[in-house]
């Protein structure tokens, strides 16, 4: 084989190798399974972003499609982030609070234990009907599996929570569809579709990864919000109030 042919051979072989490697990289990650054969989402996870301060950071197109009268309603509304009063942050905000989240799975259940304010969500994966005539800060969550993705439909949300500290609000018509998909040993892709016909002109999406906390021996700790009730002083809204 001449030097030139050798070079061509190596180049082709190299390209073929790269193509195989690329195909492998693009093949969907196959998550390990729980004992009942579902993708295993268990572990302690956390987001790494500032969405809790301004959710538009993680919004598709960085836009929140507000209706005009909803913006007007928001301008006249409360000025202090509700979590300053230690109320639960709502869904999806609880996911991107900068605190660890432990996920446990049992047959028929996915349980989210949030370190933030010791909030929790018990999600049945049986596609049961939503509850009627009752609102919750964290809503009524009903799950099901679509292939390897856990889909949670969240309704019965109240209008008392904000999406972030930047006073992005919603009404009690908020409907959130969350999708959790393992994308690697230490990552879950989190996506939420946010609908609220009284607030937004169309459904919009946020997306972010959840990262596994890999520190050996890491355990959830207790986080009690209302201790001393000094939170209010440090939770001032940073969008200025409208002038009268």
């Amino acid at each position: 084989m001449s030097d030139r042919r050798m070079a061509t051979f190596l180049a082709v072989a190299g390209m073929a190798f790269c193509a195989v490697a690329a195909a492998q990289a693009q093949a969907p990650y196959k998550a390990p399974r729980t004992l009942d054969g579902k993708p295993d989402l268990q572990g302690i996870w956390m987001t790494r972003n500032a969405a809790s301060f301004d959710v538009s950071e993680v919004a598709e197109g960085r836009q929140i499609p507000y209706l005009a009268d909803a913006l007007a309603r928001e301008e006249k509304g409360d000025r202090v982030d509700p979590i300053a009063h230690c109320s639960m942050p709502g869904v999806p905000r609880i996911t991107y609070m900068p605190f660890p989240i432990q996920i446990l799975q049992r047959p028929g259940y996915v349980v989210f234990l949030y370190e933030y304010q010791h909030d929790h969500r018990i999600v049945q994966t049986n596609s049961r009907p939503h509850l009627e005539d009752i609102d919750f800060y964290l809503g009524d969550s009903v799950g099901h599996w679509e292939g390897d993705t856990l889909v949670i439909d969240v309704t019965n949300l109240s209008d008392k929570t904000w999406l972030d500290s930047a006073r992005h609000t919603h009404s009690d018509q908020l409907h959130v569809i969350e999708r959790y998909t393992r994308t690697g040993p230490d990552t879950i892709a989190y996506e939420a579709t946010i609908e609220d016909p009284k607030t937004y002109s169309r459904p919009w999406k946020i997306a972010m990864p959840l990262h596994r906390i890999t520190e050996p021996g890491f355990e959830m700790r207790e986080q009690e919000c209302i201790e001393g009730d000094s939170g209010r002083a440090i939770h001032m809204p940073y969008r200025p109030a409208p002038k009268d």
Partner: peptide
């Protein structure tokens, strides 16, 4: 869900 601290 029991939101004890509602309204404070």
């Amino acid at each position: 869900e029991a939101g004890c601290f509602e309204g404070e």
